[in-house]
């Protein structure tokens, strides 16, 4: 199946099982990112278990250290 999400402010077509893990694989996201679903940061344990719906807003954030 395919659903359309809002990924970092832009429409994104997600193919396959609509879980965050699928999205991370499809976007080849790596490193120390954290994921927010509809404005709330999620624990890592939710990546495999949280199912996404059409129009969900996903933001992938990275820690920054510059001062």
């Amino acid at each position: 199946m395919t659903i359309t999400l809002i990924l970092n402010g832009k429409p994104f077509q997600l193919d396959g099982e609509p879980r965050i893990e699928t999205l991370l694989t499809q976007t080849a996201t790596e490193g120390r990112f954290v994921v927010a679903l509809n404005g709330e940061l999620l624990p890592r344990t939710c990546y495999a278990t949280t199912f996404l719906q059409a129009n969900d807003q996903i933001d992938i954030l990275f820690p920054i250290a510059g001062g």
Binding site: G31, R32, G66
Partner: peptide, 22 residues
């Protein structure tokens, strides 16, 4: 917020930073 904090990020010396942003 950030459970994983390994030291591989770029600093301002390498990446640059917009002056008024700080």
């Amino acid at each position: 917020v950030y459970p994983d904090l390994s030291e591989d990020a770029l600093g301002c010396n390498e990446a640059g930073v917009l002056g008024p942003l700080v």
